[in-house]
């Protein structure tokens, strides 16, 4: 089971870095992140699995998609968008994601994953949730490090690092705003990005 997820992750990553089309690469990259999230789940880390899906496969990928769509703006945008995502572009990522889905569903039917999913659901109650009795032995041999322990550790031992991460995010926000801001001499709107190079000495 672990090896299947690893193979999916490696194949998806390999395809992601070898695509010529950036949008197709992003599809495979999302599958790669999802498979790493499944790896986290199998390693007994449900909290970072959820974070991986939400932040990496969600927020960061949305940034990438935004930028790629911005770069493709122009008069040929409609045809470009149509040929950007032909139906066969979905087949490869869809197959890999289906493997991941099967992998998640199969232990669920065997009651093997109940400890992990139970911890993910009852996040703030306890690390060891109420579990069916037949699933108890698996919990004994594979401890799940749940969100509660992560949160306690994060806001006690690593409190200074959390504040530094806040500073980093603020710096990233201000920096991205400053870099992405239009300069006064150029009259380019973000929608007119295709107009090549207001060549002015910077």
């Amino acid at each position: 089971m672990f090896w299947l997820t690893s193979i999916v992750a490696i194949v998806a990553t390999l395809l992601a870095i070898s695509r010529l089309n950036a949008t197709h690469a992003l599809l495979y990259l999302i599958v790669s992140f999802l498979s790493v999230a499944v790896l986290f789940l199998q390693l007994g880390a449900p909290f970072v699995a959820a974070i991986e899906v939400i932040v990496y496969a969600g927020a960061i990928m949305v940034l990438f998609v935004f930028v790629i769509m911005l770069l493709n703006l122009g008069p040929h945008a409609v045809e470009g968008e149509r040929q950007l995502l032909p139906p066969h572009a979905w087949i490869g990522p869809g197959l890999l994601a289906a493997v991941l889905l099967l992998e998640l569903l199969m232990p669920l039917s065997n009651n093997q994953f109940i400890p992990t999913t139970g911890t993910a659901k009852h996040a703030d109650h306890s690390t060891i949730p109420t579990i069916p009795t037949e699933a108890a032995p698996q919990l004994q041999e594979r401890m799940v490090v749940g969100p509660k322990e992560v949160g306690i550790k994060l806001f006690s031992t690593y409190l200074l690092a959390v504040e530094l991460a806040g500073f980093l995010l603020l710096a990233g926000l201000v920096g991205a705003f400053h870099i992405g801001r239009e300069e006064p001499r150029t009259s380019a709107k973000p929608g007119a990005m295709e107009v090549p190079s207001q060549e002015g000495p910077a």
């Binding site: 932040v55 990496y56 927020a59 960061i60 940034l63 990438f64 935004f66 930028v67 980093l168 995010l169 710096a171 990233g172 926000l173 920096g175 991205a176 705003f177 870099i179 992405g180």
Partner: peptide
């Protein structure tokens, strides 16, 4: 990574 990708894409 989030901060880095925001700066990089800008």
């Amino acid at each position: 990574a989030a901060a880095e990708v925001a700066i990089g894409l800008a």
